[in-house]
Simulated assay, not measured.
Amino acid sequence: MIIDSAIKLADSCGLDAVSLRAVAGNLKAGPMRLYGFFHSKEEILDMMVDAVYAEIILGEGVLDDWREACKHFSARLREASVQHPWFPSLLGGRPHQGPNALKYLENSLAAMQRSGDFRSIDDVLLAVRTVNAYVLGFIQSEAAERRQESATGLTKEEWRDRTHPYLLKRLATGQFPTIERVVNDARHEVIDGGFEAGLSAVLMGIEQSFTHSAAADVKRK
């Protein structure tokens, strides 16, 4: 009940609104009662993160193909970051060790280990870390974009239209020819397509670098 109340508060008002006093107020209890369960706000935040991981792994089945498993885990993590905008800011750094966070990590590692495609557990760990680094970077970028949209009242497209004349002036100096080529010639994928395409590229790189199948392909050549 305490953590559910803290999550609802963070969802509606942001992490800065979460405090022992504020959560106690929502529960119509005195702050001192919460100090019997928590010593600091950080303890509440850790449990909030683990509660979101519980949502992510809820009803999770076993996927035989490690690539599909990575796509599934990544999509679930991204969905959670949209539902709980504060969640991405608490990821990264030291790994979370709550039971649900550990279960998420266990499922990610096991999907690769179970496949038998990887040469060693070290390669499995590096592959999982590589996927997580890509997904975390992407969802944190998305979260920052949503915060900027909320703060400025401008959508990404509106902001781009407003700043485009300034960008054109900078490009006209000739100092940024590669950026100019990106602006003029690159296909600007929608954000959903960009996530999936990037993840597929990461998974392809992992397969080529760490798996037995990649080694077999090299021998055949």
Results as ranks from 00 to 15, higher is better:
Lys41Gln: 08
Lys41Trp: 05
Glu42Gly: 05
Glu43Gly: 05
Leu45Ala: 09
Leu45Pro: 01
Asp46Gly: 10
Asp46Met: 14
Met47His: 15
Met48Thr: 03
Val49Tyr: 11
Asp50Leu: 07
Asp50Val: 01
Ala51Tyr: 09
Ala51Asp: 07
Val52Gly: 03
Ala54Cys: 08
Ala54Tyr: 05
Ala54Pro: 04
Glu55Asn: 04
Glu55Leu: 07
Ile56Cys: 08
Ile57Phe: 03
Ile57Cys: 00
Leu58Met: 10
Leu58Phe: 11
Leu58Tyr: 12
Gly59Asp: 06
Glu60Gln: 14
Glu60Ala: 11
Gly61Lys: 12
Val62Ile: 13
Val62Glu: 15
Asp64His: 15
Asp65Met: 00
Asp65Pro: 00
Arg67Thr: 09
Glu68Ile: 04
Glu68Asp: 15
Cys70Ile: 04
Cys70Val: 06
Cys70Glu: 10
Cys70Leu: 00
Lys71Ile: 12
Lys71Ala: 09
Lys71Thr: 06
His72Trp: 15
His72Asp: 14
Phe73Met: 10
Ala75His: 12
Ala75Val: 07
Arg76Asn: 03
Arg76Glu: 06
Glu79Met: 14
Glu79His: 12
Ala80Lys: 09
Val82Thr: 10
Gln83Asn: 12
His84Val: 00
His84Asp: 00
Pro85Tyr: 13
Pro88Glu: 05
Pro88Phe: 07
Pro88His: 01
Leu90Lys: 01
Leu91Phe: 06
Gly92Met: 07
Gly93Trp: 06
Arg94Lys: 14
His96Ala: 02
His96Ile: 01
Gln97Phe: 13
Gly98Val: 03
Gly98Ile: 05
Pro99Glu: 00
Asn100Ile: 01
Asn100Asp: 08
Ala101Tyr: 05
Leu102Phe: 09
Leu102Trp: 10
Leu102Met: 15
Leu105Phe: 12
Leu105Gln: 15
Leu105Glu: 13
